[in-house]
């Protein structure tokens, strides 16, 4: 068998390897975290579009605050929730560059709600990648604006109760209503097929920016297995059964 493997393991037979746009730094994320998959997909698109020297990312506050350690492009790290404001100025001052933000649910849908809505409503020609795992991962698993009803977190330990905690926010549907958004979609990365679809979606969002179409929002419904206190495999299953009915996958708007 060893001989057969060595026969296959030749450069001409390589069908999938790590993109050069990803750095060699080992990611600080927990085992099984969705961030790593989205980072990879994003990096592959940057490589395939050959835009590594033309792309500037905006990092959020949250677990992915250190995304700039992993994707080898120029980065700015924003204050919590302010990434769309940074991106607005960056794109208006450098319209020749691809500008995207990478934000979690707390960043985009709680503290940065105003910046998100107004950037989208102005139709800023940027891409917003929205990682929605329904929890504040970095600070230890607190309730997020997107925590679904009944879901447990460290600040709703008995499950989210709308009468007390308010309702989960479907931010992506809300953004799709705005005239400035060109492409709004909700994806996931829990299976190989879902990863392929997410890659197509993010690629499309970057193409929209190239064509000056307006704001593109790609939500990726994600897991936070540490925050959810599950194994990565259990977390994927839980997400399919509980998150997808409330956050259905697919394109919401494509102009």
């Amino acid at each position: 068998m060893e001989a057969v493997i060595n026969e296959i393991k030749k450069p001409e037979n390589l069908v999938y390897g790590k993109t050069k746009v990803l750095t060699d730094n080992v990611m600080h994320y927990c085992p099984g975290c969705s961030h790593g998959v989205v980072h990879k997909v994003l990096s592959e698109i940057i490589e395939e579009m050959d835009i590594q020297d033309q792309t500037i990312g905006v990092a959020p506050v949250g677990c992915s605050v250190l995304i700039y350690n992993y994707i080898d492009i120029d980065w700015q790290e924003a204050a919590h929730g302010r990434a769309p404001a940074l991106a607005t100025a960056m794109k208006r001052l450098r319209p020749d560059r691809y500008i995207f933000t990478y934000q979690g649910d707390g960043d985009l849908a709680a503290i940065g709600t105003a910046e998100t809505i107004h950037a989208c409503n102005r139709g800023e020609n940027i891409v917003i990648i929205f990682i929605n795992n329904g929890i504040y991962g970095m600070t230890g698993g607190q309730m997020a604006p997107t925590t679904i009803e009944g879901m447990k977190s460290s600040t709703c330990p008995f499950g989210r109760e709308p009468v007390h905690d308010g309702n989960p926010l479907k931010m992506t549907e809300l953004l799709a209503q705005l005239p400035g958004t060109a492409y709004v979609t909700r994806q996931s990365v829990h299976t190989a097929g879902a990863v392929r679809k997410t890659k197509k979606a993010i690629r499309k969002a970057f193409e929209k920016q190239k064509e000056n179409k307006g704001t593109s929002v790609v939500e990726v419904v994600s897991t936070c297995n540490s925050g959810w206190k599950m194994t990565p495999v259990e977390a994927n299953k839980w997400m399919e059964e509980n998150m997808f009915p409330f956050y259905p996958l697919g394109d919401i708007k494509d102009v």
Partner: peptide
Amino acid sequence: NGCTNCALVCPDSCITVYRK
């Protein structure tokens, strides 16, 4: 069979796939 599914879902990009 070198389908690449494992590499696609790997969050740490630590799988390289060959197919013949």
